[in-house]
Amino acid sequence: METVRMPYSAHSASTPRSPRPRPRWWTELTLLVLVYAAYSLGRLLARGDVSTAVDHGLAILRVEKALLLNAEHPLNRLFTSTPALGIPADFAYASLHYLVTPAVLVWLFRRRPARYRAARTWLMISTVLSLAGFTLLPTCPPRLLEAGYGFVDTMARYSSYGWWGDEASAPRGLGGMTNQYAAMPSLHVGWALWCGVLLWRHGRNPLVKWVGVGYPLLITVVVMGTANHYFLDAVAGAAVMGLGALLTRPAMRAAERVRVAAEARFGRSPAPAAVSPAAASSARSAPAPSRTSPRQGPIVSGGCETSAGERFPGQRTRTSTPGTTSADDTPATAR
């Protein structure tokens, strides 16, 4: 007896699960604003003692010199002596962080919606993880060290060209609303790496892929040349993003379990379409589908007719009543 397949399995019928809805822009915007507001507040609350932050900065500088990784000094001297490099670098530091990252998020939301949720979760987890670094290791950036250490604050030197003041990249008068000692890890580098990975993986145009490669490298040079970060700050930013990537899938599974539990408790998932008893009975009594190959040869006699009295070998005639003619137009009584 032929088994009739239902549009869903018995397991799915007993445990229906609704498909994951596509993200809505207003809920996503609200979520991102709340997370960024919490991050900014936590960053402000993570302010440590200035002397401790200076000690941490000098310790990082000593480690870099011991490992021959001190690229900040030559880059900073180049940006200071060449305004054609220093001024664009300051604009890049003050703006790209807040322009490119949202642009990549919007691009994923519109063009790669299947990849958006994981990318957004990765970004949020890594951003929250960075708060641990700001809290445990407040670090004085190179530009705030004493002049004897050889660094020049290019943001302050070229502040007349931009909207920022002498305090980091915040607009003039709002410098007190930022934590200038939240330098370890560098989220400028971390977010740029996030953008680069997504552009490389999901971009279809070769130019987009190469932008994904070049953008994090550019930001790494910019943060060191403007004396806003040490090289090890950039390394820590990449490490935080790597840890966030590892935690993304477990976090999404946990969120899915919470969603399913909430639906089971407070709402009802849409069940699969029910099959009526009559439809199931007719499906069971329906003849089994032919097992012949779907690729059959053409009908040779299609469109052909036989003349009166002519029959194909083995052809069966229709049973007819007296006085009627058979399929070959010969009266049945004449046979």
Rank of each mutant, 00 (worst) to 15 (best):
T121V: 11
A283P: 05
S40I: 10
R77F: 01
G148L: 13
L144Y: 04
L44D: 02
S285A: 12
A234L: 12
N70I: 04
G203T: 09
T135K: 10
S14K: 07
R172L: 12
R259L: 10
S95Y: 02
L78H: 02
R77Y: 03
W26P: 03
T121C: 10
G175I: 04
H97V: 11
H11S: 10
V221G: 01
S95N: 15
S9Y: 10
R43W: 08
H188L: 00
L145K: 11
L29A: 14
R20F: 04
A94K: 01
V235Y: 05
R5I: 03
Y215T: 09
F151N: 00
T306C: 08
G148S: 14
D328W: 13
D328E: 14
L69G: 01
R257M: 10
P298L: 08
D49E: 14
L217K: 08
A274Q: 13
Y149L: 11
V50L: 13
P250Q: 11
T319S: 15
P277E: 06
N70W: 06
L41T: 03
E2T: 06
S281R: 11
E72Y: 01
S51T: 12
W25N: 02
A234N: 03
A262N: 07
C304V: 09
A288I: 05
T319E: 06
G212Y: 00
Q180L: 09
R47H: 05
Q180K: 09
L61V: 03
R5L: 11
V189Y: 00
E146D: 15
V275F: 05
R249N: 07
A46Y: 02
P88N: 11
Y158C: 01
A66V: 07
R257A: 12
W26K: 09
L193T: 00
F151G: 00
G165W: 08
W163S: 04
L136S: 03
C195H: 01
Q180H: 03
P272D: 12
L129T: 05
T135L: 11
G297Q: 08
L207F: 12
R204K: 11
Y98L: 09
F312L: 12
R5C: 03
A254P: 06
L187Q: 00
E72A: 15
R335F: 13
P102G: 10
G242K: 07
P74Y: 02
N228G: 15
T321D: 13
P113E: 12
E305H: 13
L131T: 05
